[in-house]
Design a protein around this nucleic acid. Structure first.
Lengths: 246, 246
DNA sequence: ATTTTTAACTGATCTATGTCAGTTTTTCTA
DNA sequence: TAGAAAAACTGACATAGATCAGTTAAAAAT
């Protein structure tokens, strides 16, 4: 198990189409009209649901496709030469991932499924060709990569400057915002990743993650019940996430 | 001083052209033929030299241009709402910067000159239009952004997992490699940034940067003489940068 | 249902690096 | 060229978070 998904798992057809996908406004399809949408639709392959622990693509694989998350969630991570894993991101419905393989033609990270997940797969070459015809799609691809760079710059700041409490607070607020944009509850959500994975992502040990979550709960900022998080005082949490008195 | 450069400083003409620029192979011009190069040349503005401390563009400015470094070096940094500066990168001749403004249309970071520097400025809209005609240019833009994402993912790993010695070792080796590719000495170079800036970038205090540099020198891995660095044992330095026994 | 395995939590210590405080060196300025 | 200001270095001490060692709780497996 935990093997890369064979191509056959990605079926060429499905009754679902971009034009009636409710992730329209989040995905690369933003602002495309019906004609344009159907052109995009032609090059999208939709998969059967993937289950927890499966690897969608692995570090070192030839870069060929990008993926849009339809339902569920995934993590991306790199494995260093000393074998250590570093989680580089968690992704949710509407997110487009895999574009970081363009530079070398080799996937620089692995994508692993965190919970039952469906994705749309697109051959990058086809997407690039279509982007010549569709300026809005071309712009959207650049925007997606630009946003990814900005997100990572925020993570650099978090890792270089913030203490454990601020990191966790920032993590929870970012999740909350991302869920809100997707139409999910911003105040109550389920963590699809383990404490260990949160710690790995945030540069903390599992123990510290546990302690901070407990502390935030004691201080009345959140409620933690296993994987279920409720944000009780988002204002205080935001203030904490921004750090040191100002 | 330290103000954003007024547009007039960027002169529309110069006797230098992309076709006889020795950064050809590093810059976005990679693999363009003569005809293509001259089209790129038409939309490039070349500046008078900028001097240390000047701000090429500031966080919050409207995003309009990207910049290719021709000579010298710059840093990019974000300023958080609490006023803390986080350096997100150092850039050298051949590097293309500023693409991270595409997403929001606002520059997400500031660019500051570290030493006397010349840059080529290109209006992004013009570059995007030209990229439709020139598939190799289009691909190069995507590659540049993809590479930037990968670089930042390496930084995430460094900040989340490495100790002070490993961070400095990694920093020096990356610089060495980047200088080598540019045809400069890989074993002897001058740091254009201060210890403070190195620490800020690597999530360490100035004191720790000093101590580690001294320690590496004592152990015979490098020679430090003020801003001048010599790498004496690149193998040991590389081993150290990769961290924990393996 | 019961056992096994894995994840999460908690307390007691240790340590790498931050903080503070001062000196030396370098760079800037007049 | 001297004097001021900034950068770099170094030592003494403090501390946030890691590590270690266990307990408890939740999934998985039988």
């Amino acid at each position: 198990m935990n093997q890369t998904i064979p191509a056959q798992n990605i079926s060429a057809h499905s009754d679902q189409h971009c034009c009636n996908c409710n992730l329209h406004s989040l995905c690369m399809a933003v602002s495309l009209d019906m004609t344009e949408l159907s052109k995009l639709d032609d090059i999208v392959d939709r998969s059967k649901p993937l289950s927890k622990g499966q690897t969608l693509s692995a570090q070192g694989d030839k870069f060929q496709s990008v993926y849009a998350i339809k339902t569920g969630s995934v993590k991306t991570y790199t494995t260093s030469c000393s074998g250590e894993e570093q989680i580089t991101g968690f992704y949710f419905p509407g997110d487009l991932i895999g574009l970081n393989g363009i530079d070398t033609g080799i996937c620089p990270d692995s994508i692993k499924i965190l919970e039952t997940t469906t994705v749309c797969q697109v051959q990058f070459e086809q997407l690039d060709m279509l982007s010549v015809e569709l300026p809005k799609l071309r712009r959207q691809l650049l925007k997606t990569m630009s946003k990814e760079i900005c997100n990572e710059q925020h993570m650099l700041q978090l890792l270089a400057k913030k203490n454990a409490d601020e990191r966790i607070a920032t993590f929870l607020i970012r999740l909350s915002n991302r869920f809100k944009v997707r139409g999910f509850s911003e105040s109550r959500f389920r963590l699809s990743m383990s404490r260990h994975e949160i710690g790995n992502y945030l540069g903390l040990t599992v123990e510290t993650v546990s302690r901070v979550l407990t502390r935030l709960q004691k201080n009345g900022l959140i409620t933690v019940e296993n994987k279920e998080i409720e944000i009780l005082d988002s204002k205080a949490l935001l203030k904490l996430s921004n750090g040191k008195e100002d």
